[in-house]
Design a binder for these strands. Structure first.
Lengths: 195, 195
DNA sequence: TTTTAACTTTAGCAATCGCTCAAAATCAAC
DNA sequence: GTTGATTTTGAGCGATTGCTAAAGTTAAAA
């Protein structure tokens, strides 16, 4: 007893996510979004409530996709560390040119939303905490597998990984340093094993 | 035979810098700026040309201040590494609560301006390159002083430092992890010496 | 076929944006 | 005190912002 929704929510969110990731929340206008996702204001606002609502869903989808990507690499490698390394290399080297930004969308979000009580700031914190917990699980596996010694806890390894990964992505945001990526990722994983 | 300028350019730029650093370029309105620097539109635009002009000057001033801060710590310590460490601890621990953002304004800028041909994007790249060159000089000193071995070049040390520093600042942007700062900075400088 | 509920389109609103400019205010030189 | 160059002020412009609400469209239910 109705008309049917003409858009596929998943692919729309993914398109919005790309634009938000590239330009940031404030620099992306609702007109930009309309064009990118090919929807008119009325449809957008009935589906997502607000620009903030669409961004919120985009950011959540981004972290899910990132996790799914890691899972994919893990299932193709023998060890956790090999999987993580394949993931890191994929993000920083292989998909660099087709990615909306070199910098993690979560990190961008956390950096953009300064007001400590804002919804999107809280969201970015929660998603980051969630992702850290996920990474911690992975490093627990790595320790149990004997890939890493237990001089550091899984959480400490996860923290170290995040710092390195974020730092590297930030550095490779600038152009003309691509050839440095491989050795610096090599160094990163050497350090993890030697900690 | 004229009226004199009533504002001190230096302190005005510093105030604008603080606001831009906190909120980012796009989220800072010219009305916000008017209030923060206590100037009316006409004065602002005759002095700085545009919002972009004021931001540009703010970002340049930020990097100069950062260098000056490092110089300050270097003159109070015996070695380059001690100076850098004092600087890092000051930024991440001591001045955390009074800083407009945990994240370096240059990094924020580089992350915010996505369009590759935009003036402010180019500016952020230039300032970052300039800062890397400055850091490289410092690490050259450190190597010459025998503080570091020369298995890595000064430039490579500088890169490593930037990755670590940016990564750490990003991580400590989230609340409730303050007690981790000291040991993680400790670890960072241990790694630098052991590279 | 008609009704009806759900979705899409579209014009456009109120607010805010970056910015301008004519008038008022200011101060050094005379 | 008067002059005149210069700066400051503040009303407000045109453009754009996020968003709304009414009209139009569609398809399932009656």
């Amino acid at each position: 007893m109705a008309n049917k929704i003409k858009f596929e929510r998943e692919s729309v969110v993914r398109l919005a996510s790309q634009l938000f990731w590239q330009k940031g929340f404030h620099a992306t206008s609702t007109r930009d979004l309309q064009e990118a996702i090919n929807m008119r204001p009325g449809s957008i606002y009935s589906a997502f409530g607000s620009k903030e609502g669409l961004y919120s869903e985009s950011l959540k989808d981004y972290t899910l996709q990132m996790k799914a990507q890691i899972e994919g690499f893990l299932s193709n490698t023998d060890t956790v560390l090999e999987g993580l390394r394949a993931f890191v290399e994929n993000v920083i080297i292989e998909t660099k040119d087709c990615s909306p930004s070199a910098i993690c969308m979560l990190v961008k979000a956390n950096s953009e939303f300064a007001e400590k009580d804002a919804n999107l700031y809280e969201l970015s914190l929660n998603l980051a905490a969630q992702f850290e917990a996920y990474l911690t699980q992975l490093f627990e596996q790595a320790i149990n597998n004997g890939e890493l010694n237990s001089t550091m806890t899984a959480l400490e390894y996860a923290r170290f990984f995040q710092v390195q990964f974020t730092g590297l992505r930030g550095y490779f945001n600038r152009p003309g340093v691509t050839q440095l990526a491989q050795p610096m990722i090599e160094q990163m994983f050497l350090l993890i094993k030697k900690l």
